[in-house]
Amino acid sequence: MRAGDVLDERQVELVRTVIEEAESNTGLIHSVHVGPSDGDPRVYAERLLAALGPLAPYATLVHVDPALRRVEIVTGTHAAIRVDDRACALAALSMGSSFAGGDLAGGIVNGVRLLADHAGPGVVAYGTHHTG
């Protein structure tokens, strides 16, 4: 996967590290998608979450659409118990304000950390095996 024109390699590596940290701390999957939405961003974010397959209930999915200037956070059925909608709204707002300043990597990192902090420590339910 090419980093596109918005994140350099160092930033991609940073986001990866932060996501790994968040996952090992919370036991939830923290998936982040950056790219254009196919249709409505909210519906697309839900499709992205569903695409995680058996991991979806244990996942929070952040979908960032730089062109539409929109960030969508969707939580799986189990993850929603740990990360409620207010925590999602806070993370989304925080990310949006970073993005507005042109800081894509910083926004993602802060958002994921907020979500993970809110979820609190937990056991890895599924590990981080990828589906697909």
Partner: peptide, 12 residues
């Protein structure tokens, strides 16, 4: 946005 979509910890 003209880059490829990036999916961290997404399906392979």
């Amino acid at each position: 946005y003209d880059g490829d979509p990036l999916w961290f910890d997404g399906p392979s």
